[in-house]
Write a protein that binds this DNA or RNA. Sequence first.
DNA 1: AGAAAACAATAATATAGTTTAAGAAAACAG
DNA 2: CTGTTTTCTTAAACTATATTATTGTTTTCT
Lengths: 193, 193
Amino acid sequence: MIITPIVTYFSKYWPLDETAIEILNSRIVEKKLKRKALILKEGQECDHFTFVVKGCLKMYKIGKKGNQHNLQFATENNWIADYGSFYNHEPSDLYIETLEPSHILQIRKNDVFHLYDNSSLFDRNIRIVIENTFIEQQKRVLQTISSTAEERYLYFLKKYPNLSNRISNVQIASYIGVTSEFLSIIRKRITSI
Amino acid sequence: MIITPIVTYFSKYWPLDETAIEILNSRIVEKKLKRKALILKEGQECDHFTFVVKGCLKMYKIGKKGNQHNLQFATENNWIADYGSFYNHEPSDLYIETLEPSHILQIRKNDVFHLYDNSSLFDRNIRIVIENTFIEQQKRVLQTISSTAEERYLYFLKKYPNLSNRISNVQIASYIGVTSEFLSIIRKRITSI
DNA sequence: AGAAAACAATAATATAGTTTAAGAAAACAG
DNA sequence: CTGTTTTCTTAAACTATATTATTGTTTTCT
């Protein structure tokens, strides 16, 4: 079944029952995307939750000077969405784009609400997903206001060891909030110790 | 009734019914605190949601060098809690402290879950509170990785005009992620234009 | 009211991070 | 497989921010 990866994912928390699986299965949209495909653009409303089966995506904002600032990455078994735009029905100021050819499963907004209403299991699981994202982000705020770029980089390596072998340093630099040139300097400093 | 401020607050979203009000009223803890009172310390589990009736609180982390980093302020009609510690039942690495003599209402963890189970209205309202905090924080992450200190300060002034007249620049500096000396320089630069 | 603590401004010096430019290596697309 | 794009590194000059120290002012506590 197409939704098996999601069922497996939720089995860690509140395993879906027959009913929930059936509803979910009838409302999922499967997509295979090539590299650099956009699934959300600034100005659009984020009207879907995306689950990554295979591949890698980034969510970013474009700043005044035209440079990208990465807010989040998502790889296998991660969820990605601009929850602010989604829940407040507002246009997003973010982009979501594949960094690799990717296989994703999406649930459209209407279907998310339908699932909330028809299965408290789905509701609880999604809440956990959002809570975890929230907690991650809180740590990140604290880190960005209290650590140096080098500390942020080392933390990133420790926290996402597989990611850092998979995406370019340009993307990592944009995530930790420095230029890629400065990340080069940091990397040199670290390896030369 | 003690909980009137909370009832009024929720009336903006999903107004509580008789039942919900009664349950809530029986499980609220009222506190009057003086300045510099701690309601959460590093190492403790955050086992309460706090609603500010009157006064001002800050939530912060203490960094390696002993300096405070403000994550959030809460004034009248704001909620404050370390949701990460609360939901994952983990010790917090944050402090929550009054900046002024304050009047607060607290709901202990057990009671929060009891309320979730017994009133879907309460459940929905709290979810909205957390969602909003989450969305705020997402904006903040983007800002810290993409803006200068001066931009962050101007944004803070615009966003929290009453707060900035009420708390010291030391606190604001700690929130936007600069030293108070550098904030002085920024302020001079701004007013001299 | 008076002592103690916290605050705000300033300046000099030091460090962290950006910008621009350029070239070599690696990855990608047709 | 080859031309094109992206990535990584380096360096010099520049800008943003931290650190330390000093001083006068305001706020808080008793």
